[in-house]
Amino acid sequence: MLTVLVDYDSGNLHSAQKAFERMAAEVGGGAVIVTSRPEDVARADRVVLPGDGAFPACRHALGAVDGMIDALTEAVQTRAVPFMGICVGMQMLATVGREYADTAGLDWIGGEVVPIAPDDPSLKVPHMGWNDLVVEHPHPVLDGVTSGDHAYFVHSYQFRLANPADRLAHVAYGGDVTAIVAKGNVIGTQFHPEKSQATGLRMIANFLRWRP
């Protein structure tokens, strides 16, 4: 069993790596590596795509790793290995991102990434801190996670889904804000599971055991 965290020079992978390593050791989840080599993605049993920063910069950086998009597509779409996107790594699953300029996403889950626009002017952006999840559908990765559990968010844009059934959970912040998306063997979290203490670690453990 090999879990690959894709490194495309977007932010800090250290915490994510340590969190996945710790939970892999607990659940017998095998090896965890951080890599920017498409050939590692080609042999991965699970793939994690993190991402911090602006959508266009992340999308460009991911595309700049020679062969990576093809390797990800083959692993996730053809071989159907379990995939988790985190933060901008989740946003890039969308059809299009509308941060600064319109940027095409991977289009694995239909929808667009748009600014958070709270209907209450006193609410600050970025949406930063701990918010409690409202779980809309059960999912193996949410085993033991229930509505009311908190996750740590820090973002100014959100994933608005073309098909509401692809949304697993949301939080309230002057309107609904998408927290978790899922479709087939793909799941994505707007928040950082590796920074969300017990709730996040549980989701990571569930992901490492998930057999879609």
Binding site: G11, N12, H14, S15, K18, A19, D52, Y152, V154, H192, E194, K195, S196, Q197, G200, L201
Partner: peptide, 30 residues
Amino acid sequence: AEQCFMPLTVGGGVRTPEDVRALLLAGADK
């Protein structure tokens, strides 16, 4: 960052984007 899976802000003596990058790579979130 290896032991605490929670958000961490680091400050003091930060002068350039390169300083930011080095701290983010070390495991700071902000």
